[in-house]
């Protein structure tokens, strides 16, 4: 059932995002974010092109190529395949994300929940992260 009155947003520009937040690595849950956020495992860089394609680079949940659906009001959902990484292994899988973009001016702030599922040597791995950051148009 495809449904909803949320209107997908067609206008989009190339954007580069930097986000920070503690990942859950499969060993009990995320620790609080480091202050200042100098732990590389908490960083994520993502690039979104004007075709709504996202390239994600992070130590965990991993590296992904995704398809974004943005809605009017700043809400967006992402989905795509990639390489999933956590404390229990590395494997092929996919990610999904939901985020909210707000306060857009020179920068746009972004709060995003991203999760991944993959198959590693130890079995199914499922890292995730809640991250806060900013993006700017390129």
């Amino acid at each position: 059932m495809c449904c909803g009155i949320l209107t997908p947003s067609k206008a989009w520009a190339k954007k580069l995002y930097f986000r920070v937040g503690p990942p859950a690595l499969g060993n009990g849950g995320p620790n609080p974010i480091s202050i200042p956020p100098t732990n590389v495992a908490e960083w994520e860089v993502s690039y979104v092109n004007d075709a709504h394609r996202e390239y994600v680079y992070s130590i965990s949940p991993g590296f992904f190529y995704g398809f974004l659906t943005e809605f009017s009001g700043g809400l967006y959902v992402g989905l795509g395949p990639g390489i999933v990484i956590n404390a229990n292994g590395v494997g092929l899988g996919g990610y999904s994300s939901v985020g909210y973009e707000f306060g857009c001016g020179f920068l746009c702030f972004s709060l995003e929940y991203k999760q991944a599922v993959g198959i590693a040597g130890a079995g199914v791995i499922s890292p995730y992260a809640l991250r806060l950051g900013f993006g700017f148009e390129m």
């Binding site: 937040g21 503690p22 995320p30 974010i33 202050i35 929940y113 999760q115 599922v117 995730y128 809640l130």
Partner: peptide, 22 residues
Amino acid sequence: WEAHLFPAGVQGGILLSTGRKQ
């Protein structure tokens, strides 16, 4: 593929630490 995300303690909202069930 559904996730339920809960704040981990009173400081969860500030420090972004969470508990999750997938």
